[in-house]
Every structure is written in structure tokens, then in C-alpha cells.
Amino acid sequence: MFAATDLNASNRRKQGLIKTLFLLMTILLIVPVLIILTVLIVKGGPVISFEFLFSDPKDEMTAGGIFPALIGTVWLVSVALLASVPLGIAAAVYLSEYAPDNWFTRTINLAIINLAGVPSIVHALFGVGAFVLFFKFGTSILAASLTLAVMTLPIVIVATRESLQAVPQAFREACWNMGATRWQTIRRIVLPNSISGILTGVILEVSRTAGETAPIMFTGAAIFLPFLPEGVGDQTMAMSLHLYAMATQVPLPEHAANLPYGVALVLIGMVLAMNAISIGFRMWLRGKKKW
């Protein structure tokens, strides 16, 4: 079956070649990202300034800054987190700590997979049908954030469930044996020992939520608003939609052509920074064993 009992030189060269080939494929996958980042930094970098970050768009968005969009994204992400984090953690706790292994639990897991797989534009349609129209929230931060919350719920659930399941079963049994209720066990032992894993998942969710465009287009984000949102009932601008608008809707004169690169750079910077924090956090955790 395997002919290579003694590796001769040509065989070894073949091995090296194959390995190099696969390395090449991996690199080709990653190189475009580095090129893209470079272009964004070269073209967008000079655009970014204190004024760009902290002032309003001017002259029909051909000049000025991105402040309302930044603030809007913060609003959208915060409200989405308020809704999805408690619900997502509850779902994960249920699946990890309570759920028996039966068809019902499998159905929940399938629903989670599907929730993550439904196209973002379908989430947008759901947001319009459910939050904007049925619950009469109108196009508002509330409707947009809830749409985002439903969409990113699987991220929190999966990350939380994973870190809950990493807590050894023996700890739970030891607590139950002492007469602790399930909830006391979860609160005193399970959650405190998985909180950092949960946090990693939440940061990842922030990064994902901040970049989404389609789900907020029709539910609460607007291309241009002359004022900042004052509550969850208001519409808002958002970084992602702002980039879309700058790139496709606004005719930019020559001198402002690089503005969208600046917006893209800030957006991708926010997202990648969040991601890097999440990854770094995870690695730090791995080195810090508590049992």
C-alpha cells in the first residue's frame, strides 16, 4: 500500500514540494488582505484626522467628518448588546447546564446554526416585518439594534456554551453534593470560571455588529441626518452605511475622492481592533490555568 519504506532524495524533494504548494495556497488566501489593508492605509490614512473623527459631514457629504456615524454605530452596538448578551448567555447556560440530550435540544442547536446562516438581508426583512411594522417601533435605533441582536445571537451563544462546557463536571457535582441548587452552582462556580470566555465572545459580537450594513439599512439607519440620536426611538447614521453611501450614492469631486477610504479604514480599524482584543484575550486565558 505505502511504497515509501526508504525515503530517497527525490521522494523527499517531492514532500518538500507538496508542503510548499500548500503553504503557497495558504499565503495566497491571506496576501490579498494585507494588500487591501495597505491600500486602505495609504489612501485613507491621510484623510483621518482629529477633525475627521469629531466633526459632522459637510457640503452634501463631500467634506467634513464622520462623527454622527461613529456615535450612531456606538448606539446601535450598545443597544444590540443589551438585548442579545443576556439572552445569549441564558441560552448557552440552558444548553450547557440544563438541557437533556434529546430531540428538543437538537432542534435548538439546529435553530442556532440556521440563525447564523440566514442571509443578513433576510434578517433585514424580518426586522422590517417584525420590529418596524408589527411591534410598531418604526425605523429606529431600537428596531435596527434588535435586528442586529437576533442576527448575532448565535455568536454569544456558541462562545458562551463553549466556555461553560470547559468547566469540569466534577466541580458541579461537588457543589450539588453540598446541597447547592443548580443556580447557586452556576453563579458561584460555573459562571465565574467562564466569564472571560464569555467576554471574548461578546467582543467578537461587537466586532461583527459594528460592521453589519444590510440589517440596519431599512430598520433604523439613515444615510444622512443633520442631528445626533437622542434615544432609541430616533434614527441614526452608522459607519457601515456611511461607507456604503460614500462609495455608491454620493458623487465625490476629485479632491474628496479619498474620503471613503478614510471611512473604510476607520471601520475596519474598529472591527479588527475588537477582533485582536478578543484573540489576544483568548490566548492570555489559555496560558492562565485555574485547574
Binding site: P86, L87, G88, I89, A90, A91, A92, V93, Y94, L95, E97, Y98, A99, T107, I108, A111, I112, N114, L115, V118, V122, H123, L125, F126, V128, G129, A130, L133, F134, V150, L153, P154, I157, T181, R182, W183, Q184, I186
Partner: peptide, 29 residues
Amino acid sequence: DKGMQVFMFIGGISAIVFIIGIFVFITKE
């Protein structure tokens, strides 16, 4: 303990509720 169990269960079924909700609301429109 009982109260928390109910709360966790609600979280657990939320994914099913949302998937069904998505289908129902887009079908409705």
C-alpha cells in the same frame, strides 16, 4: 433556582422562536 431555570429555558428556546419568527414575518409580508 426555579425562576432562573425558567429564565434559562426562555433563552434556550429563543433561537427556535426567532427562526420561526423570521419565517412567519417574511411570509406574512
